[in-house]
Design a protein around this nucleic acid. Structure first.
Lengths: 328, 328
DNA sequence: GTATACTATGTAAACGCTTTCTGATAACGC
DNA sequence: GCGTTATCAGAAAGCGTTTACATAGTATAC
């Protein structure tokens, strides 16, 4: 704020109104618009010990997933009267930068594993308000978590492939190592197989990293290796794009030769060809709910320790269902 | 030679301990990390009169456009050592909320018309560092602007439709009223027509609002009205989706009956069917550059008053070119 | 060996607001 | 009428840093 030239302070307002500074601080009603007075956030923060700001820590802003989450978070944060400071821990995890924390926010929203576990513990220990999204905290930490029904969703999806489309050799394209969403989805996948009497084949689990390119590469390899399969459960929709590309390149028809399903239902999923059958995750709502829980914490109220959002099967064409059954 | 027993400097300690000064210095650092000391941002801000924070004002976080822009902005902001405070002026424009400004940021990035013109002027008058994206400032304001070659892009696109695919009745689906990108694109559209001896028909300009639904509705109407056309230049890629839907519903083949082209080249553009021919706008780079210019301003240096980013024609299938010519 | 320039260190004054405290005045009960 | 309590301004004490200033100590030059 170097460039402010003689902008009015609370003292100016007090003088104009003929009252004390304290009065102005209390009764910030009149005289303010007169001088276009805007309280200096830093001074306020320093005195009141509240930043009035919520921090969001995220890993990758790129994907199709992020805008949905952010939209929910932004809207809810705003309507609660808070500011939003965002921080992405892209690539250089080792960056020296001081992360968001007690010094500049009232509370933190943390997505997946975008924050080192030790920093998480530190914040938790000093009782700093924290809400996790799509990540279970270590046992000793009692931090609210918002996540989605990954297992149920995956199970629905895979069961659909088995029951409606008679698929038996279903590839699971998993996400990044240790990614919780991916682990739960795999569990759902396995349970669906099991409950339909299909034995689990580790050779059908490949790495997709929730990333188009990686998914493409893994799919190519699978095809080159001559592994047989009649369906692919792509860990998320982004990876499904890579799967599509690899299959088309190999002249395998989707869904006739290989049925493909995704997870998340991001914007493009309905537009790709064939339209992707997937699981709709209430991503925006996850964001909103996370903020709500954090606000509870900020107000000293109790927060719900686990919020599990329902997921929903969205049937389109890539599983083998016909376009007619599809609603746009 | 220590005359008195006082005055132990870091060098004395070092000498006495038989280690280097650097070692002693490191000990101090250790003490800091030992106490997990993190300077309070507010106090720092108050004393130094710098927030070390850049503000971003945006209107709609939803679209496919936003993540790209944000990614560039976030990365560059971070690498310059600043924090990022984001604020969206969605829907309720009249919200009482105090916007980002002198009180909590060092400078502001403003996208399109997401900030009222009078607030813009106010900030400009108090010499507050400001950078505009995709929006020309009022004359008296000397604020740096980053924008893209909208006109050139549009002209390339339309010329391609005319020259390569012999289209003559080309619909322009414009963006929101007063949206600068849209205005320039229309100008490019008109110039392309003119330079090919095609007269401009106002009846072929319809409203798409850069929005899928609105584009869908306008397209339906056009079809119902029986207006003849053999191509559609959709103001942006989001709207192109709506155009696709309306045309498919009316059983018009893309690109045989109607060629469709978009603008922006967002993530899904290459995946929809047929793959969308469009203009690649360096959105992420716009974000980066905007931050760079703002940093210049913050450092008291001169900033470039206008940065015009080149756009590039991306030919896919929706214009009528064959898939073979396409690179993935 | 002294004068001078320079550096490191300590001290104290902002920074602009919130909040607690204090005294004065008003309202109230008996 | 007096004493007690509620009400309300104004005064003043922070809030946790930076920074300007003063001071002491050290190196450099003659």
């Amino acid at each position: 704020m170097i460039h402010r030239n003689r902008s009015s302070t609370i003292a100016d307002v007090a003088r104009l109104a003929g009252v004390s500074i304290a009065t102005v601080s209390r009764v910030i009603k009149d005289a303010i618009s007169e001088l276009k007075f805007v309280p200096r956030a830093a001074a306020r923060t320093l005195a009141s010990r509240r930043t009035n700001t919520i921090g969001l820590i995220f890993s990758e802003i790129g994907g199709a997933f992020f805008p949905l989450l952010l939209k929910g978070i932004e809207a809810e944060t705003r309507s609660a009267g808070y500011e939003l400071l965002i921080h992405s821990t892209q690539a250089a995890h080792a960056q020296k930068r001081r992360p968001l924390g007690e010094h500049n926010t009232d509370g933190l929203l943390v997505f997946t594993s975008s924050l080192e576990i030790e920093e998480l513990c530190r914040l938790s220990q000093i009782n700093f308000p924290l809400v996790l999204m799509h990540q279970t905290p270590p046992d000793e930490m009692n931090t609210p978590v918002i996540t989605i029904e990954n297992k149920d969703g995956a199970e629905m999806l895979v069961s659909h492939l088995i029951e409606k489309h008679a698929r038996r050799r279903i590839v699971y394209m998993q996400g990044p190592e240790g990614h919780e969403d991916s682990q739960w989805r795999e569990r759902g996948y396995r349970e669906a197989l099991e409950s339909h009497g299909i034995s689990f084949d580790p050779g059908l689990v490949v790495s997709g990293e929730f990333d188009e390119e990686q998914a493409f590469a893994s799919m190519r390899q699978l095809l080159l290796d001559g592994i047989e399969f009649d369906a692919v459960f792509s860990g998320d929709d982004d990876a499904a794009i890579g799967v599509y590309r690899a299959l088309k390149m190999a002249n395998r028809s989707i869904p006739d030769d290989v049925a493909v399903v995704g997870f998340d239902d991001v914007q493009f999923s309905r537009y790709i060809s064939p339209a992707l059958t997937t699981i709709r995750a209430p991503i925006e709502e996850v964001g909103r709910e996370a903020v709500r829980q954090l606000i509870h914490l900020l107000n000293g109220e109790q927060a719900q320790s686990l919020t599990l959002m329902r997921t929903e099967l969205v049937i389109r064409e890539s599983c083998g269902c016909s376009p007619k059954e599809v609603n746009p």
